[in-house]
Design a protein around this nucleic acid. Structure first.
Lengths: 250, 250
DNA sequence: CGAGTAGTTGACGATTGTCAAGATGGGTGG
DNA sequence: CCACCCATCTTGACAATCGTCAACTACTCG
């Protein structure tokens, strides 16, 4: 992903030509509507590894759509450090939590070289009042985010360490696959420590689980390169009914 | 709370007279706008303990605002039972996760006798296109929900059992207090088992913690009746910096 | 009043975190 | 191009938190 070469002359793509358009945009917009939207959007701003998109407490101004690369969002705790709230892959939106108080409630940092489209929320909001399908799309976007967080709550509340890592790998796999990439072979952009943080587990646990998964032929992992070798069984671990049977064999 | 008597003739209150109006409604609506809104809303539908507001997989049609009583929302897992996603107190909205797919992604059940206002989302949506401040309010509502779930993720990811229960009690306290009730003395509507489920802990752990808190003079708990006797110290447990110091004394 | 559900308590064990030491590898500068 | 360095990762030993199991108590509701 890091090595993908994007020709410079395509960096300033308008929404109309954007490969992610079906993810960002609702169906049924007129060409005129799309033009209005793209006039408001700042396209393809580039961030590098470690660059901050926004920080907890910053004034909320815009939503960020990841176009390539990846972003992590997190809260900063007084002494315990950060709690990672999510990893954001191409086509996903970051910053929705800022609308409530006009201040960002979390921080967001690029995990690698990352291109984002930035949408000033105030302008977007005005536009949604004029374009019903865009309004509906934005409501759906918020709602989808809530649904995903609900899944994450379930994961943290009811899943053991194995199931959490399995679910994590499957989530990344599915999401990359939706963007046209391989579902079974990919490069993680986050460190073991970040995975552990996200899943509520210690780094050492993540490391041990990767080894265990590898020993049992579920994945081949070399550093950040991951190859899922038994997708089926990985899936069945998350479906906890079968997981209980499986756990005794593992 | 269960015993609160609501005169029957006030049960069909329009939004204009609703005591929760400042919670549900944005500031700066004209009287006309409020009338439009209340014409769309079904007010004060009564649910009893165990009654289902909606179930996972149901068609999504409306949002529910709790007016009195309380509601739990949860996902149903194949064999592990349910994972509780949230408890909803008066003034809070339930059902936001349904917008994304037009199907409810979770279920919601009344924990006690509960009155809800029900807002058909399609109509609400049309109205928001006409009333900018209502549109903004709805975006904020979604965003606030996301912020709260982020807090919950942090709780499940980084807090130990003690901190989780402390945070839970403080959350209930704060929210009830915002509705004009006592911050230090209240009646829980959920069982120990439901608290445990919500916090990712076993019932027995909750039971032991209540005893521990009581022994240390933090709360007095008799079944569902809770009295917070040392609010200060409870707060400092959640602020994890001090919590580390405290833990050795407890 | 009786039955069943919810809550409590104790004993025990497993999962997962912590600590410490060592290995690996990417990146940088000579 | 090589070598060194630092961050990341791995691995093992040990400990602690929390879950599980089981028995018992106490409400609540019909």
């Amino acid at each position: 992903m890091k090595d993908t070469v994007i020709p410079l002359d395509r960096l300033r793509l308008a929404c109309k030509e954007c490969g992610l358009a079906t993810l960002c945009l609702p169906m049924g917009l007129t060409s005129d509507d799309v033009n209005k939207l793209s006039s408001v959007i700042q396209t393809n701003r580039i961030y590098h590894r470690g660059d901050v998109l926004f920080r907890n407490g910053d004034n909320f101004a815009k939503l960020y759509v990841v176009k390539s690369g990846s972003v992590k969002s997190f809260t900063e705790q007084a002494e315990t450090g950060e709690q990672i709230l999510g990893f954001h892959l191409p086509g996903e939106v970051v910053g929705l939590d800022g609308v409530a108080s006009n201040l960002h409630q979390s921080s967001a940092v690029a995990l690698e070289t990352t291109a984002c489209c930035e949408m000033p929320f105030g302008q977007l909001e005005k536009l949604t009042a004029q374009i019903p399908s865009l309004q509906h799309h934005l409501y759906r976007l918020f709602s989808k985010e809530i649904g995903q967080e609900n899944q994450m709550l379930t994961l943290l509340g009811r899943f053991n360490a194995e199931q959490r890592l399995a679910a994590f790998l499957l989530s990344i796999s599915t999401r990359l696959n939706q963007r046209g990439l391989s579902a079974t072979e990919f490069q993680l952009s986050m460190s073991r420590s970040e995975i552990g943080n996200y899943l509520g587990l210690a780094v050492e646990t993540i490391s041990r689980l990767f080894r265990k998964f590898q020993e049992h032929g579920l994945v081949e992992a070399d550093r950040k390169r991951v190859k899922i070798t038994n997708y089926q069984q990985l899936t069945s671990m998350v479906d906890e009914h079968e997981a209980n049977c499986l756990r005794h064999r593992l």
